[in-house]
């Protein structure tokens, strides 16, 4: 199977998020970015499938800051090919990003496209599902298991309460990966550096992306805390004492 894995950099939520002067977006200047955690799972599942049933894995991303490094890291983990989609940059809507990926992927002979199930900033919808509709192929999201079965795949999708549905699907198909069956592999920086020297980063044009999300952000704000917690002050020792009293009072 030819597996394509789109990857995306997202703001690291460990950092403090600030709103920019427009009041409509994050102040991105000092933000730290990292690869969307679900993309690590998507790449892991793709590499595991390749390891057990052959095929190729291609990591693909839209042009942007630091994206080369993310793609080389994918190569270091075992992706056969890494591709950068050029001609579209900056903070585009997911509709536009999906259209760019659909154009770029066309002609790559994809059997499977594994996106991360979601990211923390997909205001106008999950990219994977949008991509599938632009590619005119089916999709399943919240996927926690994929097995190749001849020309088709067996896919498990997760619902609430740990309930899981099993589907059989023809390829090509887009799957939104929630979790790989193994914890995503880690690559040391030295290996990424080596991949940087030995990997050919291909570029493909985004083509015509004249689509629109159909809505615009009017305001971004920090959620008003819903009543908010009573914050306990003092040293860890003091706090522990207060918590012990609170807990004893409730049980």
């Amino acid at each position: 199977m030819n597996i394509i894995v789109p990857i995306k950099q997202v703001p690291d939520l460990v950092e403090e998020l600030e709103i920019d002067s427009s009041g409509k977006d994050l102040d991105r200047e000092w933000l730290k970015f990292k690869v969307n955690e679900f993309d690590d799972h998507a790449l892991e599942e793709a590499l595991l499938l390749k390891e057990d049933s052959g095929g190729t894995v291609t990591a693909i991303a839209l042009d942007g800051d630091d994206i080369d490094k993310a793609l080389y890291a994918a190569a270091a983990k075992g992706a056969d090919k890494v591709v950068k989609v050029t001609g579209i940059e900056g903070n585009v809507s997911n509709h536009e990003a999906a259209k760019a990926f659909a154009n770029a992927i066309q002609g790559m002979g994809a059997d499977l496209v594994f996106t991360g199930v979601q990211s923390v900033e997909d205001r106008d919808g999950q990219l994977g599902v949008l991509l599938a509709h632009y590619m005119n192929v089916p999709h399943i999201s919240v996927v926690t298991g994929v097995a190749v079965n001849g020309d088709s795949v067996n896919v498990t999708k997760e619902y609430g309460g740990g309930m899981v549905a099993e589907f059989e699907a023809a390829t090509p198909i887009v799957l939104g990966i929630q979790a790989a069956r193994e914890t995503p592999r880690y690559v040391p920086v030295a290996k990424v550096r080596r991949a940087m020297r030995s990997t050919d980063l291909e570029e493909v044009s985004a083509g015509d992306v004249s689509v629109s999300a159909g809505s615009s952000v009017s305001r971004m704000f920090k959620p008003e805390s819903g009543g908010g917690a009573e914050m306990l002050s003092g040293s860890a020792e003091d706090v522990a004492g207060k918590l012990a009293d609170i807990i004893k009072g409730k049980i």
Binding site: R123, Q126, K222
Partner: peptide, 27 residues
């Protein structure tokens, strides 16, 4: 148009919870 992660909806405006619940966005 689709607006996802909606925590409130009214005619012409939808509030979404993004960034793991750290930001609200009105569309």
């Amino acid at each position: 148009p689709l607006i996802a992660y909606a925590s409130d909806v009214s005619e012409g405006s939808v509030t979404s919870q993004l960034y793991g619940g750290k930001m609200s966005v009105e569309s």
